[in-house]
């Protein structure tokens, strides 16, 4: 019995233990891995995935899924790179307006796509897996058509965002570090997500819908509206994450956002979000994204063959899902009722 509890606690902490193991292992292989600068980079690089995964959590919580988030990033990037060039600039000549405009284009793209998903799922009753799989291909096709599959260059004003920092107060040997824009945006999304999910009526109703949609209907909740809103929120986050990724990369090719949906869903599951709805938090996906990013950074540090990367990340994802399944089954088994006191010995 107490053995069971111990195993269960270990399983729950498994992703955290895995994180520690990965950090220690790569640290032993290369001690520069443990530097402040490296961790800062890891978190910055994890930010886009983490932002997308927070949005994905809203959709997973209601037992739906959105496979189109990576494609949304690519469409947003195409629109921004093609129409927000210095030459055209949507007619806006002031370069200071370009970054807010491009953020707006990204976010609007995501929210429109999310709204379409929400409508298709709620009014046509099409499974979100199919609906968003279809838009994954349609949106990638659209973006390739818009960009002619050329590399997309962002204007300098947009790329520069990536170097901004606020609160430059952490003094290190080389310079004073602050909070980079990517992390600031992540923090804002994280905090808003947490507030909405935990402390608003809407957020608690999301959990109710995810637990039992029929019961939610009977309780008089506006289920369709809640489902619709979750897809829009997911699209919103996909747009924000796409913007952050675009500023970080500066120029992107036709594989921008490709298969990102898998990393995003994996980050959420690693963070304890259930694929069956009703269970999950917003800090989990952030942790999951950092875990995935740390692994990739470690592999880069030890000069691993790039073809090994997908193998290792896939192994981690597999482990996370396996652990989750094991945990669920153990919880079920332990909830087996005890009828009589246990005899000694």
């Amino acid at each position: 019995m107490s053995d069971n509890r111990l195993t269960l606690a270990l399983l729950r902490l498994a992703p955290l233990l895995l994180f520690v193991v990965i950090v220690v292992a790569f640290g032993l292989l290369n001690e520069r891995f443990l530097s402040f600068g490296n961790f800062r980079n890891i978190v910055i690089q994890a930010a886009p995935i983490a932002i997308l995964a927070i949005g994905m959590t809203f959709v997973l919580l209601i037992a739906e899924i959105d496979l189109s988030v990576g494609a949304v990033m690519y469409v947003g990037a195409s629109l921004v790179a093609i129409y927000l060039e210095p030459a055209t600039g949507f007619g806006f000549t002031d370069p200071n307006l370009w970054w807010p405009l491009s953020l707006a284009v990204f976010v609007a793209t995501g929210m429109i796509v999310g709204a379409v998903h929400g409508l298709v799922v709620t009014s046509l009753g099409i499974a979100s897996f199919i609906a968003t799989l279809a838009s994954l291909f349609m949106l990638r096709g659209l973006a390739m058509f818009l960009s002619n599959t050329r590399t997309l260059q962002f204007s300098r004003e947009i790329k520069d965002i990536n170097r901004w920092e606020i609160f430059q107060i952490v003094p290190m040997a080389d310079r004073a570090y602050g909070v980079p824009v990517a992390i600031l945006i992540l923090l804002i999304v994280f905090f808003s997500g947490w507030l909405v999910l935990r402390h608003t009526a809407f957020g608690r109703q999301i959990h109710a819908v995810g637990e039992d949609r029929e019961a939610a209907k009977k309780a008089g909740l506006a289920v369709k509206g809640i489902v619709f809103a979750c897809f829009v929120i997911c699209g919103f986050c996909a747009g924000v994450g796409g913007f952050v990724a675009a500023t970080q990369q500066g120029a992107v090719g036709p594989n921008f956002g490709l298969q990102v949906e898998f990393q995003v869903i994996a980050a959420a599951v690693l963070g304890g979000v259930s694929l069956f709805g009703g269970r999950g938090s917003v800090w989990g996906p952030v942790f999951g994204a950092i875990l995935i990013r740390t692994t990739i950074a470690g592999l880069t540090f030890v000069n691993a063959d790039p073809y090994i990367y997908p193998l290792v990340t896939a192994a981690i994802i597999f482990l996370a899902v396996a652990v989750d399944g094991l945990r669920t089954r153990m919880i079920e088994r332990m909830s087996r009722r005890m009828i009589r006191p246990l005899e000694a010995g």
């Binding site: 608690r204 959990h207 109710a208 995810g210 637990e211 039992d212 019961a215 009977k218 009703g278």
Partner: peptide, 11 residues
């Protein structure tokens, strides 16, 4: 019964 197991009693 029309209750949600993942929410608290008060919710």
């Amino acid at each position: 019964l029309n209750l949600f197991g993942n929410l608290s009693i008060e919710e």
